[in-house]
Write a protein that binds this DNA or RNA. Structure first.
Lengths: 123, 123
DNA sequence: CGCAGTAGTTAGAACTGTCTAACTCTGCAA
DNA sequence: TTGCAGAGTTAGACAGTTCTAACTACTGCG
């Protein structure tokens, strides 16, 4: 299995819920990502098989160190990109939505450059 | 057919070749996008069926007005985004490669904001 | 106890985008 | 004329992502 956009989104969402509630539930992931429970079940099966997540007996999902590494990279990108776009004058909702897609596409070099500028005031 | 990332890439590449040579050829599109001729053939079939491109008897591909509109939007985004990233300090090659993916992801609002800042000097 | 609601899984299908392999067609050169 | 090279197409396969529909399992209430 290769880690692609969809997989990164699942991992990031699991991180967010894990931080908030201690662990993530399939049904909440489905709601947040606007997909069906079946899609989540399919994705979590893959993620389990590849040791990105762990699911205990009561279906509580937590990230393994490997999964967490990817999830935190995505989550950090998401926040920094959104902040950066807002600094450029983009409305918060749009900034978060666009950041959610951009986070998968940019190279480490571009992300570094954006980090260097995300704190600045330009206007 | 919905216009997605892959379709946008084909249209943009056709525009670039059309500007350069008067029309585009499947084999050159394949080389530029690093896909097989079969993939191009499949894509151009869809693009023809949906009136985004026209292919004359000697296989010369040109954009219809509808196709051109999308292609020009993508090409403009590509150039502006790449310029913007270079202003942030990203190397040219990386800037163009990242811009090529980002161009599909950003909203009109974010693109406007980037346009407003692409010309500025920050450093 | 029985039933309803909630959570999760599985099977099967569809769609997209790509690939390889095999084919046609055309033009050119020995 | 023959045959090769280049360009394009078609068929069939595969992987990824999603869906619907039907299922199981658990919980809690009347």
């Amino acid at each position: 299995m290769q880690v692609n956009e969809s997989i990164e989104d699942y991992l990031e969402q699991i991180l967010i819920q894990q931080e908030k509630n201690g662990c993530a539930r399939s049904v909440d992931i489905a709601t947040s990502l606007c997909v069906t429970k079946a899609s989540v079940s399919h994705a979590t099966k893959l993620l389990r098989e590849n040791a990105y997540i762990h699911m205990d007996d009561d279906k509580c999902i937590t990230l393994t160190p490997t999964g967490r590494e990817i999830a935190e990279r995505m989550y950090q990108r998401h926040r920094v990109l959104a902040q950066f776009l807002m600094r450029l004058g983009v409305a918060e909702d749009t900034a978060f939505a666009d950041a959610c897609r951009m986070e998968h596409d940019i190279s480490a070099e571009t992300f570094s450059a954006i980090c260097r500028h995300a704190e600045k005031d330009w206007d």
